[in-house]
Design a protein around this nucleic acid. Structure first.
Lengths: 172, 172
DNA sequence: TAGCTGATGACAGCAACTGACATCCGTGAT
DNA sequence: ATCACGGATGTCAGTTGCTGTCATCAGCTA
């Protein structure tokens, strides 16, 4: 993270990272599948939190609402370490390779959320679209949160964008 | 394409592609930015078609409807070369690297569509979410179309999933 | 014919990753 | 205390994607 911040992701070699960490290049690749994966360490934990939040929602809660609640819950974790989250996101935004990796992580998250909805009895088609829409809401809300200072909490931003989503389909 | 189909993307080296095409490896990289980009040649043309379709929509047409019409128009192109489209998609689905690249292409498409909507006077927030939702609809409809035979036209599938999107926010 | 330009070839080199084998270190059994 | 074992690490060689540089060649124009 330190090196990526200093010189940028593309200008940092794995050899440099390994040296800084007091390790060998080979050892680095035993811990991380590739150079990009370092930045997404812990992403699976966040995904599990989101999924279990959807699974634990009361049966009466509507699908999109369950997704919204899960996102709100997860946003607390990010806000706890807001400086780290923002630094990380700045690094990702600066590299095309990292943006690609981020998108596939979000796609995997959407798939996991869709499955959680299906387990609640939501029909497949609705489950997939709801999950995709929820992740889209998260994407824009998170980006806004990173850009502006701490004017609004992430959770509040998510709620606002969910409202926007609802009005979108009504009008168009 | 032939080589990717035979041996899979990961097991095909650029040297092999170049030899088969009667070229040098170096020349290959002058035509394509990297090994993946070959599969996405023509993606920009499709994106331009979609964008100009949104730009050319009548002012009275609602945002999500404009996106839907654009997707329907583009689906005709894909259906014309359905065998090629399916083969291509099979190759992409089989490789993680290619799926990453596909996602960033779709993200770029969503951004372009959002800008086209903004030019129509749609407020920024609504534009972004509508574009993202539209691309999500395309993703699921296209995947279904590739999986099943020719039971339904791609355009019809898109219309059905758009309907699904509208009912999603109503209930949840 | 001479000169210019754009596409290609040839070659060297870097960085990401992988496989194979050796080595070290902590732990538990004897 | 010693030994045996498994897991983490080091070492080394090799492949592949990708880039910079320079030479070459074909076509077009003056």
């Amino acid at each position: 993270m330190a090196l990526y911040g200093e010189r940028g992701f593309d200008n940092t070699t794995v050899a440099e990272i390994a040296t800084r960490a007091g390790l060998t290049e080979r050892t680095f690749f035993r811990h991380f599948a590739d150079k990009r994966e370092v930045l997404f360490w812990g992403a699976s934990a966040l995904q599990e939190l989101l999924v279990s939040s959807v699974e634990g929602a009361a049966p009466s809660v509507a699908p999109l609402e369950a997704i919204g609640d899960a996102l709100t819950a997860a946003s607390a974790l990010l806000q706890e370490r807001s400086e780290y989250s923002r630094q990380r996101q700045r690094i990702i935004a600066a590299s095309a390779e990292l943006r690609e990796r981020e998108l596939i992580k979000l796609a995997s998250l959407a798939a996991a959320l869709a499955e959680a909805l299906r387990d609640r009895g939501v029909p497949n088609s609705q489950a997939r679209l709801t999950a995709e829409a929820g992740v889209a809401v998260f994407k824009v809300a998170f980006q806004r949160w990173v850009e502006e200072g701490d004017q609004q909490g992430l959770a509040q931003l998510i709620r606002e964008w969910l409202k926007e989503l609802r009005s979108m389909t009504a009008g168009g």
